[in-house]
Design a protein around this nucleic acid. Sequence first.
RNA 1: GCACCCGUAGCUCAGAUGGAUAGAGCGUUUGGCUUCGAACCAAAAGGCCGGGGGUUCAAGUCCCUCCGGGUGUACCA
Length: 559
Amino acid sequence: MDSRISQIVKQLFAVDVAVHLTRPNSEFGDYATNVALTLASQLGMNPRVIAEKIADELHKTDNSVAAEVAGPGFINLRVSAKYLADALQSAWSDDYGSNNNGAGKTVVVEYPSPNMAKPYSVGHLRPGNQGWAVKRLMEVTGWKVITDNHLGDYGAPFGIWVTGFLHFSSEETLAKDGVYELGRVYIATKKALKDEQERGETALADEVQAWLIKLEQGDEQAKDFSLRFNKISLEHIHRVMDRLKISTDYELGEAFFAARGKAAVQRLLDDGVAVKNDDNSIIVPLEEYGFEVPLLVQKSNGAALYATTDLATILYREENWHPDRVIYCVGAEQQFYFTQLFAMAKKLGIKTDLYHLWFGTIDQKNDDGTRAKMSSRKGVVLMEELLNQAEAKARQVVGERTVSDDDIAKIALGAIKFSDFTSDRRTNILFDWDSIFALTGFSGPYIQYAAVRVNKILHDITAGDGDRADYDYTAEKVVIAKLLDYPETVQLAARDLEPHKVATYLYELARDLNRYYETTRIDESTSGARRARIELLAKVSQVFTHGLGLLGIEVPSQM
RNA sequence: GCACCCGUAGCUCAGAUGGAUAGAGCGUUUGGCUUCGAACCAAAAGGCCGGGGGUUCAAGUCCCUCCGGGUGUACCA
């Protein structure tokens, strides 16, 4: 319909415009467009006159659409429910909502990239969650997707671990608490290091450095510590990711790329992109990209740092994966760093679209009522604890009904994940135990419930062989119109990498469906109507599964 | 200091390319289950969209400025 209006505009006024139909208040119509308003100044005509002409032309060519001019020059369009039902039927397919916009292109998506020194906390919720959703969005829009978990397994944390373990821990507590003990030791040691620095001492810091050097030199004891600690941490990360139902194709951590850092830095020097300072540190000046501070790619002691491993990572991916695009799912705190990194890549001549998919912080309320980012100092919430609590809450709501552990896990995950998609990913979100487990209203379980319910109906009621040809779909009009919006929603969400748009859509679809049930019964309808309704509900069910799947949320079999 | 982000109902947040009467959830008040699943639905109350100025036929949305908050700002990752 939008393209036909474009055609009419071209025919009447000889201008090319992309017409976008909006969904106005139902009192105005089913669809609306403001083309006449946007054209008015360009054509030097009264917008209402333009609108009238378009509406007239529309009537002449198609009597199934009622066009009406309203207000300053809006064109409101009204069609029959049957018309929409037919449109849905012809647009329908088994992967309704998917498209091929990204065909032939490759994208690397990097997530959740946790720091291995600490247990998986809610701080890692967004990278994993948003990263997974972006991966899914890329997949259903035709891209070839490669996912990589860029583990934080390199650098000072190892030295801090060992030093801290020897001073503040024991084999017994490590055996008992595993990664949580490692995390405790890490945080305690960081604090001890800071205190020491304030006193002007360096004993502990020297010890940390000594362990790092030992590891680099292949010292047996250091290697043994490294293997043990990494194993504990990695098993933990895998366990949590399994529970979160997220995974990646690769797990190439910083340590893997640090080994390639020297060569990468050498290339920078060879290309004249980097400069060596007198103190042996190496920097990439970025004044021409608007940065006062250069990017440091080698410490004065010759060691690699973040920018070094990230540079090696970029080069490795270019060589091996040839991506058109790389999406880094990392928090907003690193925005400045990534703009520097990308500027360096550009300076090196890398053409790939490097994109920092950032998200706001997870905040906590301070005692004085203000908000601030959750931090290990103030005490973070651990992911396993969050999952356990969410499952307990779900179980409590389920009550007497028998629901499998698997379904409970799906509901708990539905609540947690969806809460991350209730706002734009850039928004700082306030961590709150109640809202993150929300099971009612604008929540994951609300949609899951609607999906479970519709599946139950589909299971219990048979469509029969009635003739639906004469059915007018009046009662279903709102739901059908909503289903017709789905492909565009996916397209927009994928274009802007904003999965929360899918979440909003699914909520509205579920709400429209719940309202529909209030007025219409499926089982009491006549044979032809029943068949039409059952077939429509099957479509709704498919969209629920598809859409929730984009958010990494599954539909339980029961709840 | 500088850079980026944010300020919308009591709270938490939506509001694509500027468009008609600014929307949800939670909370509050009220009504609806002998009914295909009430984790639901219906209704009500609640807003100088941080302040001021500008551009436009039209501004929550764009520009300027001020106020308030968050996050960064080369040898941490």
